[in-house]
Computed example of a mutant assay.
Amino acid sequence: MKKNMKFRRLFFTIVMSLLVLIISACGNDDASPEPESEGGTESSDVTLDSGMGEVTLPGNAEKIMAPFHEDALLALGVTPVAKWAIGQSVQDYLEKDLKDVPSIEWNLPLEQVLSHEPDLIILQNNMDSYEGSFDDYNKIAPTYVMKEETVGDWRKQIETFGTILGKEDAAKKAISDYEEKVADAKEQIAEGLGDETAAVIWAVGNQFFLFEQNRHSAEVLYSELGVKQPKLIEELGEADAAAWNPISVEKLSELDADHVILLALEGEQGIETLEKSSVWQSTPAAKKANVHLINDPSNWTNKGLIASQETIDDVLSALVK
């Protein structure tokens, strides 16, 4: 009897041990295989043409720096590791998304760039404005230099950034959504404004800058939204990117626009100057009380998807009743 009991216990122990081994083996079969090598992430790298020739960039970058082109990053849902600034001046229209992001000076001092420990740096094609060279920045992190045509076209920027960051679908959607916004706004303007003309003036201190037809976001106003240009804007022709000279109040007397969008920070001296100027008060827009003051010029003095969206909102608010 005692021998049978011992045999049963031994048999039970052996069976339980075998079950544990079988379960362990099954668990190992279900587990994901270990990567063969640490180089497995290389498949996500991106090779594309740039202003410095063909480059290969990491497809898994998280700490990205694209000074002055944060608009394109934000349009793709990416927050940069640092934001462009000149002293205390930043791109105000982006501050709702970037208020907690540290600044980096416009000329990209190497020590500042290094302090942010970027995984990827995206630069403009004009390297002369930077403190360091391409090689200097490329030693800190893989660096992409945009081509000239990419710098000047925010749609190409978003497409390029989308390729670099593996966000091609997000880039397509962002541009598609924008085109829908333009089409809707254009219809509202055609109905509400008709053939009335509009001009944009930026007051800086006591100086006045009249936007040519393609100067910054004026291109949105005229080319995309179809707002009619007054004769003086037509005569100015296309903007000279290298120069933008102020216009005198006396010259503004020739501005025959039905509406004027006046860009000026709150309390800017130029606002009072125009209010007190009999020359200005004799212009069609002033006579009709169609001078529309906007206190944040920052989206108007830039080109980008978000800048353009906010410009459209400003135009609708000012010109469509």
Results as ranks from 00 to 15, higher is better:
residue 319 L to V: 06
residue 271 I to D: 05
residue 161 F to G: 08
residue 52 M to N: 09
residue 313 D to V: 06
residue 122 I to R: 09
residue 111 E to H: 04
residue 134 F to S: 08
residue 39 G to L: 15
residue 133 S to L: 03
residue 45 D to Q: 13
residue 290 N to V: 03
residue 235 E to W: 07
residue 123 L to K: 10
residue 219 E to W: 07
residue 57 L to N: 05
residue 127 M to G: 07
residue 205 G to S: 08
residue 196 E to V: 07
residue 101 V to F: 05
residue 300 W to T: 02
residue 48 L to E: 00
residue 129 S to H: 11
residue 21 L to S: 10
residue 245 N to A: 14
residue 163 T to A: 10
residue 3 K to Q: 07
residue 63 K to M: 02
residue 232 L to A: 11
residue 272 E to M: 09
residue 227 V to E: 04
residue 269 Q to R: 13
residue 37 S to L: 02
residue 90 V to P: 05
residue 19 L to Y: 13
residue 185 A to N: 05
residue 108 L to C: 12
residue 131 E to C: 05
residue 246 P to N: 06
residue 179 E to F: 07
residue 121 I to C: 11
residue 199 A to E: 02
residue 32 S to K: 15
residue 241 A to E: 00
residue 249 V to N: 04
residue 188 Q to P: 02
residue 36 E to F: 15
residue 10 L to D: 05
residue 40 G to M: 09
residue 48 L to P: 00
residue 292 H to E: 01
residue 180 E to S: 13
residue 10 L to E: 09
residue 142 P to E: 00
residue 205 G to R: 06
residue 253 S to G: 14
residue 314 D to G: 12
residue 162 G to D: 02
residue 299 N to P: 03
residue 250 E to V: 06
residue 252 L to Y: 01
residue 219 E to K: 13
residue 150 T to L: 03
residue 157 Q to R: 15
residue 151 V to H: 07
residue 55 V to M: 11
residue 20 V to W: 08
residue 257 A to T: 03
residue 189 I to G: 01
residue 100 D to E: 14
residue 159 E to Q: 15
residue 71 D to G: 12
residue 145 V to Q: 08
residue 278 S to Q: 12
residue 36 E to S: 14
residue 229 Q to E: 09
residue 188 Q to M: 12
residue 270 G to P: 03
residue 145 V to M: 11
residue 109 P to T: 10
residue 228 K to V: 00
residue 312 I to T: 05
residue 176 S to P: 03
residue 212 E to I: 00
residue 116 H to D: 01
residue 236 L to H: 07
residue 265 L to T: 02
residue 273 T to I: 13
residue 318 A to I: 06
residue 10 L to M: 11
residue 24 S to F: 14
residue 215 R to E: 01
residue 23 I to G: 04
residue 9 R to L: 14
residue 57 L to A: 10
residue 13 T to S: 13
residue 293 L to N: 05
residue 299 N to S: 14
residue 264 A to S: 10
residue 80 P to Y: 00
residue 189 I to E: 00
residue 254 E to G: 07
residue 187 E to I: 08
residue 144 Y to M: 11
residue 161 F to S: 06
residue 221 L to G: 08
residue 125 N to V: 01
residue 68 F to L: 13
residue 229 Q to Y: 03
residue 89 S to T: 12
residue 266 E to G: 11
residue 60 N to K: 14
residue 90 V to I: 13
residue 29 D to Q: 15
residue 242 A to C: 01
residue 62 E to V: 09
residue 216 H to K: 05
residue 14 I to D: 03
residue 254 E to Q: 14
residue 198 A to D: 00
residue 128 D to A: 15
residue 172 K to S: 06
residue 86 I to C: 07
residue 69 H to R: 15
residue 85 A to I: 01
residue 86 I to K: 15
residue 83 K to Q: 12
residue 46 V to H: 01
residue 51 G to M: 07
residue 241 A to P: 00
